[in-house]
């Protein structure tokens, strides 16, 4: 009987050493205006971008700067490393996982050369958003110990 009222939640952990910021602070309207979905953003200080939860790697963009994940509860996550980093054409990004792979929380997906990205004048703000928002009831990013908690409908 107790289980009947329990909401389904996905807890996402930090994918890398970072500072958490609001999507409003991302210098790109596609993300700050939540055009592709809602969530949170980080400014990475570490170089290994890892899975924020157990997930299937749906896609790593050909230039390795963006990752698509599917969580066990069916949420689609997009991790977009830096802003306008597609222009780097793959330089500074190294993929460590393979599309189709099922990975555990904390396993590395992409390694990013932060110094190179900065030197090339690209912002490091990294949006992490849910792209199938129709499944989401609430996103909670206030808890400083996790990336965000997503409550599903």
């Amino acid at each position: 009987m107790m289980g009947f009222f329990k909401k389904k939640q996905e807890i996402l952990h930090f994918p890398v050493a970072c500072q958490k910021i609001d999507l409003n602070q991302v210098p790109d309207a596609v993300f700050s205006q939540r055009l592709l979905g809602d969530g949170v953003a980080i400014v990475p200080t570490g170089t290994l971008i890892c899975a924020p939860c157990d997930a299937e790697v749906v896609q790593i963009f050909p230039t390795n700067h963006a990752i698509g994940l599917m969580t066990p509860l069916g949420l689609e996550l997009l991790i977009h490393i830096g802003i306008d980093t597609v222009e780097l054409k793959g330089e500074g990004f190294k993929r460590l996982a393979t599309p189709g792979q099922h990975i555990k929380a904390g396993e590395p997906i992409v390694e990013v050369d932060l110094e190179y990205v900065k030197r090339m004048g690209k912002a490091l703000e990294t949006p992490i958003i849910i792209t199938n928002m129709e499944k989401v009831q609430q996103i909670d990013a206030k808890d400083p110990s996790v990336l965000m908690t997503i409550t599903l409908k």
Binding site: Q59, F61, L78, T131, N132
Partner: peptide, 12 residues
């Protein structure tokens, strides 16, 4: 109509 689908295409 699916964001993840479209981004998964990886069109170059």
């Amino acid at each position: 109509k699916s964001i993840m689908n479209l981004l998964s295409m990886g069109v170059r």
